[in-house]
Design a protein around this nucleic acid. Sequence first.
DNA 1: GCAATACCCTACTTAGTTTGTAGGTTTTAT
DNA 2: ATAAAACCTACAAACTAAGTAGGGTATTGC
Lengths: 146, 146
Amino acid sequence: MLSKKTKYAFHALTYLAESQDKGAVLIQEIASSKNISHKFLENILLELKKAGILGSKKGKGGGYYLIKKPEEITLAKVIRLLNGPIAWLPCVSLNYYEKCADCADEATCNMHLIMCQVRDQTLAVVENKTLSDLITKATDKQVLKY
Amino acid sequence: MLSKKTKYAFHALTYLAESQDKGAVLIQEIASSKNISHKFLENILLELKKAGILGSKKGKGGGYYLIKKPEEITLAKVIRLLNGPIAWLPCVSLNYYEKCADCADEATCNMHLIMCQVRDQTLAVVENKTLSDLITKATDKQVLKY
DNA sequence: GCAATACCCTACTTAGTTTGTAGGTTTTAT
DNA sequence: ATAAAACCTACAAACTAAGTAGGGTATTGC
């Protein structure tokens, strides 16, 4: 299951994507609009900034804004950042790999092979979907849900 | 990520599948063979029993045994039982469905649709793989790993 | 300049889940 | 009867997620 942190991140990102023409957006504006604790959201936006997804401007008139195009921000990147590994086992994780303690040979381990399949099937979706697939079209207004 | 409980369940099930001809197997035998705390494993086996996967025999000479053929026990069933929902969001879960608070219409929610895809891709694997895909062939001995 | 603004940073608290432990009860074979 | 083994309830410890607190620091508008 995706953590609240991850969901909040997607909420904030979609909000920012829809406000791209307005320049920097206040944390407070996103927080109250999406019903997220201001301080909690602050941490999330900071993480997204450190990951190179968001930029920020300090001082009066400051705020956060996207520094990438929505179609360049994959769901996989956001999920890995806020939620952690996508794989079900450390030994099949591409970004958080850890060797199995009780396994001699990954090439012949049945569980390993099956979990690789699960990972690849999942990645086939989330590596190819981006923020642009989440944002609502102006002409086709709808509520984002998750 | 799969919990230890889930991994332990798979370890125990593979052990039992490989011991099918020997009748009831002691908790202690599985626990020490797979390096699992006896008492913790006890709870897991009990859950598997209540789910109709295992049978048991009390008293002297008792133990646990499979009451289904390995090829009838899907990974999905075990994962749902010990690990919880397979879906990434409650609103796309087939077995643990919950409505989203902040969503009016699932049919038009972009996130909902994408998460359905992830779920279906995952299920395509784990609903079609069974315990028989995990057990080692007698002629092709290998170590199970996860 | 300077005060207001708003991001930045560290640490802490609270709540919930996972993992594991303890001890007793019931059932069965011998 | 007795020993063996599953069954059951409750609790404890460890870990993680979620949220809070308070100040520090850079920038901007006036």
